[in-house]
Design a binder for these strands. Structure first.
Length: 565
RNA sequence: UUGGACGUCGGCAAGCGGUAAGCCACCGGGUUUUGAUCCCGGCAUUCGCAGGUUCGAAUCCUGCCGUCCAAGCCA
């Protein structure tokens, strides 16, 4: 369960407000000093990075306090849930580095049913025969009190009889519902006789057709926590208004214990959406390739994008926990993975937009090999062979015909270094009939073999390159943000979030990569980290499909430099 | 004329009555066979606003202002 292999996960902050509450509880001797949390997703979608935050929080607390954290599926609504989702959730939680004991709310249906009966018997629950519209009308509004249902004062006997009929499937969906009898005029709308059990004649992914009534979240959740002996039930801010209800149910039934609900702000990330509804739409409308599309903010999407479990964990830790609604810059997440990959990823060269270069004074037919270190910061990473010949490819953006002084790369008459190889000077530019540059002619200096000039002369730029003869063609996918809008709350009136999809979120390129990448290019894919964003996706993170760090900055950097002046 | 929660740098976020941590971003300078990395330096006289209490307030009090949540038989 430990998730501490990343050295950068050291503590930099004091205890967050949740840990402060827990510290006080422990000091006060609450729960016998025990700490027990839980992560309770509904299996109606894949986990996203927001869940990741919650997972790291809950499991992190359990670790810190030598307690436990359960993974519990809150499967109380069969209409939206599916086994595929429970499988993916377990996979993602495990991938993040946690191997918890697994529980299902549906395993508690018998107990919850018994508690519902308890409420009926004590006159605190009744079967309402109003339909949904009537209930809504009679609930009132935040500023107007509700009106008691005409069925509110049915006898215990009648309620038991009706509830039994509901249970046996003798009532139709929507015709009646079990409600808690609290206060229809309560300022908190959640306390206006909330629904407890509704009829759903649908097969449940785990209990099958055993039940045709299912408990509502507010009724079920505290009981699930109580049954598992949870001490601190951590959830998101939108449940704040539900806490009185959470407490009410536990107080009015013979529950084993009364956990404390604590709310924190959910995660919002710039340039993406986090709602399960929208993510599901993107998937079912085929706007992305699936829940694990590398552009998705899902755990599985980030996995394919090349993020590591440690990077997600560190991100969760760095952003902290508070009750402030916030929007975290996705750049922050990218910074974290860049920092990690910078030390761990092997370097490689690839040309995404090739421009042919012929070295005119290099003997035709001759090939030689250079040794390229895999990671400049880590000698143990070893090296690989780089074939070099008369014809090579460089990046189109690494050449400029009318280059300003500040442009340090190749231009007519200018000399640059080919990384690990030689100094070359551009002598001619070959163009086609449309004036498009098709090829560069250069000369090389044999004295600079390996990349250093014996006479001590310096060059401003170092270019990456790939041998034209030995280079390997590879399809490279360049990913960018899914949406062009930084903050989805800034959507214009009348627009849909889909109107802001980024048409360039995926660009496929026919690239040329160095031979050492041949296996990866021919196989399931490989990956580049290019100054902050990623190219290509890897289906998995096995050694056969390593993550590579791109060798040099491309046009973004130049554009950036220009912008700065 | 509802109830609840929240407002500290461009973005996260410490701080809990003793005189504004840290990280990202950004801006300078140095090193560099990735314009990357790395290294040095800068970056809130001020904590939504206005009063009050106090020797002393981001921290306590009062009043405003702003944002979010709440009218599912979703979670």
């Amino acid at each position: 369960m430990a998730a501490t292999e990343n050295k950068s996960e050291e503590k930099t902050k004091g205890p967050d407000f949740i840990r402060q509450i827990i510290n006080e509880d422990i000091a006060a001797g609450k729960n016998g000093g025990k700490v027990h949390t839980r992560f309770p997703p509904e299996p109606n979608g894949y986990l996203h990075i927001g869940h990741g935050k919650s997972i790291c929080l809950n499991f992190g607390i359990a670790e810190d306090y030598n307690g436990k954290c359960n993974l519990r599926f809150d499967d109380t609504n069969p209409t939206k849930e599916d086994q595929e989702y429970v499988d993916s959730i377990i996979e993602d939680v495990n991938w993040l580095g946690f191997n918890p004991e697994i529980f299902f709310a549906s395993d508690y249906f018998d107990q919850m049913y018994a508690w519902a009966l308890e409420l009926i018997d004590s006159g605190k629950a009744y079967v309402d025969s109003q339909n949904a519209e009537e209930m809504r009308e009679n609930r009132g509004t935040p500023t107007k009190p509700g009106v008691d249902s005409p069925y509110r004062n049915r006898s215990v006997e009648e309620n038991r009889e009706l509830f039994e009929k509901m249970t046996k499937g003798e009532m139709e969906e929507g015709t009646c519902i079990l409600r808690a009898k609290i206060d229809m005029a309560h300022q908190n709308m959640n306390m206006r006789d909330p629904a407890i059990y509704r009829i759903r004649k649908e097969s449940h992914h785990r209990t099958g057709d055993k039940w045709c009534i299912y408990p509502m979240y507010d009724f079920a959740h505290g009981f699930e926590d109580s049954i598992e002996g949870i001490t601190h039930s951590i959830c998101t801010l939108e449940f704040e208004n539900h806490r009185p209800l959470y407490d009410w149910f536990l107080d009015n039934v013979s529950a084993p214990c009364h956990p404390q609900q604590i709310e924190f702000a959910r995660l919002n990330l710039s340039y993406t959406v986090m709602s399960k509804r929208k993510l599901l739409e993107l998937v079912s409308d085929k706007l992305v390739s699936g829940w694990d599309d590398p552009r998705m903010p899902t755990i599985s999407g980030f996995r394919r994008r090349g993020y590591t479990p440690a990077s997600i964990r560190r991100f969760a830790k760095e952003i902290g926990v508070s009750k402030v609604n916030s929007l975290v810059d996705i750049n922050f997440l990218q910074f974290i993975i860049r920092e990690e990959l910078n030390v761990s990823a092997d370097r490689a060269m690839a040309v995404l937009d090739p421009l042919k270069v012929t070295i005119t004074n290099y003997p035709e037919g001759q090939m030689e090999e250079f040794e390229g270190e895999n990671n400049p910061g880590n000698p143990d990473a070893g090296s690989r062979k780089l074939p070099f010949g008369r014809e090579i490819y460089i990046e189109k953006d690494d050449f400029m015909e009318d280059a300003p002084k500040k442009f340090f790369r190749l231009a007519p008459g200018r000399e640059v270094r080919l990384k690990h190889a030689y100094f070359v000077t551009c002598t001619d530019v070959v163009k086609d009939e449309n004036g498009e540059i098709t090829e560069l002619l250069c000369t090389y200096d044999p004295e600079t073999r390996g990349g250093d000039a014996p006479d001590g002369r310096k060059v401003k730029g170092t270019l990456h390159w790939v041998s034209a003869e030995k280079g390997v063609k590879a399809e490279v996918r360049v990913y960018d943000h899914l949406f062009i809008l930084e903050d989805m709350d800034d959507m214009e009136e009348g627009k849909d979030y889909r109107d802001y999809l980024n048409p360039e979120s995926l660009v496929v390129k026919e690239a040329i990569v160095e031979p050492s990448l041949a296996a990866a290019a021919a196989g399931k894919g490989f990956q580049f980290l290019r100054q902050g964003y990623f190219c290509t996706d890897s289906r998995d993170h096995s050694p056969e499909h390593p993550v590579f760090n791109r060798t040099v900055a491309l046009k973004d950097s130049w554009a950036k430099i220009q912008k700065k002046g």
